[in-house]
Structures are given as C-alpha cells and as structure tokens.
C-alpha cells in the first residue's frame, strides 16, 4: 500500500482537488444529528463518528427507480452521479466490504456496481466515543475497501492509497503530497496506541455464535418481541443491512410503469409473508431472532466475522433500547438497563 502525507493546512484544498472526480460529500452536522451531505470541505465535521444513515445510501439509495417499462419495451436509465464520499471510519469501510460481498458474490447487482464505480471512498481516522465498540467486532482498523484513507496526526495527515482508483485520483492532488519519514511512522504507532486505549464501551462477542444458537428458546426473545415497535429503524440505520423491496408504480404523465426499489426490513411483518398469506415469522420475537442470528451467527459461519461492525447506530437509534449491546448482554445473562427489559411479558 502506498503512503504519503499532507499538511493539515492543505486538507481543504486537497478535498477540493478531489472534486475533479465528482461531487464532494461528507459528514455535516445539522442540529444534533450528522448526515452525509454535499458541502464545502470547511463545513465538514471532522470529529463526527456516526452519521444518521451510513454511507450505504451512496451505493443503493433509500428509494430509486430501477426500471421504466411499457408493454413492449423497457429502459434502465439509473446512472448515479460521480461522488467523492469523505469521512468514512474503519467501521463504515468494513460495512461497505460486507455490502460488497452481499451484492457481488452470487449475482452481481448492476445498480450497486454502477454506484460503486461512480464513488470514490475517502476514509478518515477516528477516536471512539462512549458508544463505539469496533474493537470487539474486529473492525477498528481497515486495510481494504477504500480508495484513499486519511489518518489525522494533528498537524499532518497520512494518506493511504487503497485501490487503483485511489491511485488515479491522486493525480488531481499531486501537489499536496509529501513523502513520509521515519518520524511520521513512529507518530502513527503512538497515535494507534492512544486510540486503542480510548475505547470505553465493553462488549464481549466471544463465543457469540454458540450463545445465540443455544439461546434459541430463551425467554429473552419473547421479552424483546413484546417491546419491539417493528419500526424498522435498526435495519435502516445499520450499515450492514442490505434488504430491499420492489414495487411497480404507474406514472400517469408518461404512461409508464416505474419499478421502485427501496430499503426494506426483516422486522416488518410482511417481510416473511409468502403467496397465500402464510407468514414464516409472524411473531415479532421470531423476526428479531432472525436479525440477531444473521448478524452474529450466519455471517460468522460464512465469513468468519460478524455482520456487525460496532458502529452503535442501533444503540443510539432504537426507541426501546433493543440493540446489539443490550441483546448480547441479555443473552449472556449479564446486567442491562435497556428499556425493553423493563416491559413485563403478559397477554394484555
């Protein structure tokens, strides 16, 4: 992997230079939330850790028209704009790698492929807050899945080049690049040590696949199902959730059908419903079991890593406190103060 550095004072001109690739998007604070938005580099929040919705929105938007058709012909004019997406942290890039596997391994998804081609991923280092737990999911550092990655060392940033596309993009910003010296490397090692020591949230995922599998009949699921609103928030905000649905809409003006593709969720009741009206997971508890089995067991046995990258979006988003951290603790019989654990299981 090639490595350069840039002066901190050159960060904004560097990002502006990358605009030669496409529109510049990055984390922007709006009130209490942070969202990836198109903005000037000066407007980016360099300390932000988790955006409301992760960068998966660049690869498959929440809702888009995937096909237009009439009786005898069809047209697929989905052409995502070229974008530079700045500010993904290691967890977010790991999530994109999971996304990539899902959308290319068995069948290649043409919409995903087009967006991927049109997107330049520029990562940025981070220091965890009280919610981050990527150390537990093995996603606190990243070696692949980005085009460029910047590590902030205070007065300068290291620039890691992660792909041929990243290499190519450097032509746009060549004048800001400097060679690294021994001192940069030793400063980087020291920075890593400080960051590793900064994690506060303790989550233990050791043996989780077995624990989840053997807890299949645990009353914990029932309890969770009682409290879950089936709102779908957890799946929308999770960077590794990939599910979508399709629906044909009629465009009256053009006399055309539009096949809409939109984010969907396994916690919705209709998700597991099949023709004839049978529902494989009628109970909310069954649907939650599916989610957690997928994140902590299924993916693990297939790829040797959980489908959770420790970003804690579910932790800060679920209105009743159902999230990877509280569920793992409950399944381990550890204490958790999550709201859902307080709701009594009864047949009201």
């Amino acid at each position: 992997m090639r490595l350069f550095k840039i002066k901190k004072s050159n960060l904004f001109p560097f990002l502006r230079g990358l605009e030669g690739f496409g529109e510049l998007w990055g984390p922007v604070r709006k009130g209490e939330k942070v969202v990836y938005a198109r903005a000037k580099p000066e407007e980016f929040d360099l300390k932000a850790l988790r955006t409301m919705i992760p960068a998966k929105k660049f690869l498959l938007p929440p809702k888009f028209t995937s096909l237009k058709f009439r009786e005898s012909r069809w047209e697929d004019d989905y052409r995502p704009k070229r974008k530079v997406v700045f500010g993904l942290h290691p967890c977010g890039i790991h999530a994109l790698n999971i996304y990539h596997r899902f959308y290319t391994r068995l069948y290649s998804d043409p919409y995903y492929e087009r967006a991927k081609e049109a997107t330049l991923i520029v990562g940025l280092s981070c220091v965890p807050d009280e919610y981050c737990f990527c150390y537990a999911t093995g996603t606190s550092t990243v070696n692949e899945g980005f085009d460029l990655f910047l590590t902030d060392l205070g007065d300068r940033l290291l620039v890691w080049v992660g792909s041929p596309k990243g290499e190519e993009s450097l032509k746009l910003v060549g004048k800001y690049l400097e060679d690294v010296e021994q001192k940069d490397i030793s400063d980087y090692v020291a920075w890593r040590k400080r960051r590793d020591a900064a994690f506060k949230l303790k989550v233990d995922l050791d043996g989780m696949p077995e624990i989840v599998s053997f807890s299949y009949d645990s009353p914990v699921w029932e309890k969770m199902g009682k409290a879950c609103l089936s709102c779908g928030t957890c799946t929308m905000v999770c960077p590794t959730c990939t599910c979508f649905d399709l629906e044909d809409e009629y465009d009256l003006k053009r006399d055309e059908m539009h096949r809409q593709r939109f984010w969907y969720s396994c916690v919705f009741r209709e998700y597991s419903m099949v023709a004839g009206g049978h529902n494989f997971r009628e109970a909310r508890s069954e649907r939650l079991k599916l989610w957690y089995t997928h994140k902590l067991v299924g993916f693990m046995s297939e790829y040797g890593a959980p489908a959770c990258v420790g970003c804690s979006r579910c932790v800060v988003s679920c209105p009743v406190g159902i999230n990877v951290v509280s569920v793992v603790r409950a399944l381990r019989n550890e204490r958790t103060a999550a709201l859902w654990t307080k709701m009594e299981v009864s047949d009201a």
Binding site: K33, I53, G232, F262, Y264, F268, P319
Partner: peptide, 18 residues
C-alpha cells in the same frame, strides 16, 4: 404496503421524535 411511517422517516434521515 404494510409497513410504518418510520421507514420513510429514516429514509429522510430525520431524528426520531420518540
């Protein structure tokens, strides 16, 4: 379709009022 407003709310990246 039988799914809640929250889905569309999250697509729009709103903070949750709950």
């Amino acid at each position: 379709p039988d799914f809640p407003v929250c889905a569309e709310c999250k697509w729009k990246e709103n903070e949750c009022l709950l």
